[in-house]
Amino acid sequence: MGVEVNLPPMEAWYFDELGEDQRLPHQTNPPQYVSLEKLADIGVLYWKLDADNFETDPELQKIRKTRGYNYKDMLTICPEKLPNYHEKIKNFYEEHLHTDEEIRYCLEGSGYFDVRDKEDRWIRIWVKKGDMIILPGGIYHRFTLDTNNYINILRLFQGEPVWTAYNRPCEEHPARKMYVHQFTEQSC
């Protein structure tokens, strides 16, 4: 995983489960930080890239070629730019999975991706400018903005995008079974 020297690494921690505003950090007291190695152990991959030069960044081009990401689009999530903002934010925050990898590269702003660990606890991943994460198909996750209420992300796909989200519970879904086999059963 490539990390640029001058940019701070991504932060991740265990979620406190208090029912407050979803846009707050929700760190436990004291905070329990999660390492990149622990995230990789559940299939979440991370890179710190040059967001100011994303169109010509050789590191991003290498990742796209190696992983077969041949389709891309951009999405700005904020009240002023996303139609049906409140409904979409509510849907993004509903716990779900996808059949394919979810690749998100933050070009501006910030937000939170929450993922479930092997013990079914939430880990909050704070993505900021330059952070790119890959969530494996079949992992339960959700997304919300932080209190800045703005993120501009590049989304990458293998082939045409598949937008279908399968809300939890869906333990019998083939993507979920494959994820559990690959990342939970194999490491026990």
Rank of each mutant, 00 (worst) to 15 (best):
G2N: 12
G2E: 13
E4Q: 10
E4H: 06
E4K: 06
L7R: 12
E20A: 13
R23D: 10
R23I: 09
L24N: 11
P30M: 09
S35A: 07
K38F: 13
I42L: 11
G43N: 07
G43Q: 02
Y46K: 03
L49C: 03
D50V: 00
A51F: 01
N53Y: 03
D57V: 01
P58Q: 04
Q61R: 14
R64F: 04
R64D: 00
R64C: 14
Y71R: 07
K72L: 07
D73G: 11
P79Q: 04
N84Y: 10
H86K: 04
F92H: 02
F92G: 09
F92N: 06
F92R: 01
E94C: 13
T99C: 15
E101P: 02
I103H: 03
Y105H: 01
F113H: 05
F113N: 01
D114S: 07
D114F: 05
I123K: 04
I125R: 04
K129L: 06
K129S: 05
D131G: 07
M132S: 07
I133L: 10
P136Q: 13
G137K: 08
I139G: 01
R142I: 06
R142T: 09
T144H: 05
T144C: 14
T147L: 12
N148T: 09
W163E: 08
Y166R: 03
C170V: 11
E172F: 14
P174W: 10
F183I: 06
C188E: 12
